[in-house]
């Protein structure tokens, strides 16, 4: 597979991923465009530059692991994994259809190359900690990355996990909050404000990095800082825009869980050239 640290190349892949996300969800007629688009650069930077993994050997014991805790954003995960060669790109448009490996939420029964089945929010950090602890026991260099929604951070289990990892110094875990400010019912600040978010993670013993989640060089630097941080898990607070890249979806709660119409698809793709 292609691996690159060139931000221009990573940006080009990101654009391609955005197009695929729009096409997949339009074809499926349901799904979650907003939170898929906000996480594009996070996943692209991880899969094409930062993570040590091998699509030809997906169960390589020392691989870095990735968990999409906010499983509803799976269109971007499927797109990225297909681009890496883990799964067929020509089937991406079967998303959410009966018999497709591209289930509405990540499901290892249908896609054994996934690290986790998700879709019920709040559980990914705990799962990541388990994988990271196993890596430590096995003296493996494997690191585990987990992407969370900001609304998802309202789940109590997130903070039980945060307390555990801080206390136990699980420094091979990186929790990435896709801080796009919107959840299902509206803006996170109106539903249940997470702020001061960085202070919360710090108080639980985490090393915190705040970064623009669409700025690829800044993300590369942040992941490098996370890798060189020992004795503390890292929380990367990625400031993102929900629906990023499609003007009429940007920062618009309506597109949390609504598929584009054919006309909207056309307008979206026209912006992603």
């Amino acid at each position: 597979m292609l691996k690159t640290s060139d931000p221009t190349e990573l940006a080009a892949i990101s654009k391609k991923m955005r197009r695929q996300v729009i096409e997949m969800i339009t074809e499926a007629k349901s799904g979650h465009p907003g939170g898929s688009l906000s996480a594009v650069e996070l996943l692209v930077t991880l899969y094409f530059d930062v993570m040590r993994h091998d699509p030809a050997n997906p169960k390589w014991k020392d691989r870095d692991r990735f968990i999409l805790s906010k499983g509803h954003a799976c269109p971007i995960l499927y797109s990225v994994m297909a681009e890496c060669g883990y799964c067929p790109a020509d089937q991406l448009n079967t998303l959410r259809k009966l018999g497709s490996i591209y289930q509405g939420h990540p499901d290892v029964r249908f896609m054994p190359v996934l690290e986790a089945s998700t879709g019920s929010l709040g559980q990914g950090v705990s799962l990541a900690i388990g994988m990271a602890l196993a890596a430590k026991l096995d003296k493996s260099p494997s690191r585990t990355y987990v992407v969370l929604g900001d609304g998802e951070l309202q789940e109590g289990q997130i903070w039980e996990a945060a307390m555990f990892a801080g206390f136990r110094k699980v420094d091979n875990v990186v929790a990435i909050a896709d801080n796009n400010g919107i959840q299902l019912d509206g803006f996170t600040k109106d539903i249940m404000d997470l702020e001061p978010l960085a202070d919360k993670w710090r108080a639980f013993g985490w090393h915190v990095i705040e970064v623009n989640g669409h700025d690829i060089p800044a993300l590369q630097k942040a992941f490098a800082e996370a890798s060189s941080t020992s004795g503390k898990p890292t929380a990367l607070i990625a400031h993102t825009v929900k629906g990023k890249g499609v003007s009429f979806m940007e920062n618009n709660p309506k597109y949390h869980g609504q598929a584009p119409t054919l006309d909207e698809e056309k307008r979206a793709l026209a912006e992603l050239v």
Binding site: S30, G71, R96, G104, H105, D107, S117, G119, S120
Partner: peptide, 8 residues
């Protein structure tokens, strides 16, 4: 519920 799948 359909397309959202079994987690929901």
């Amino acid at each position: 519920i359909g397309e959202d799948g079994p987690s929901q």
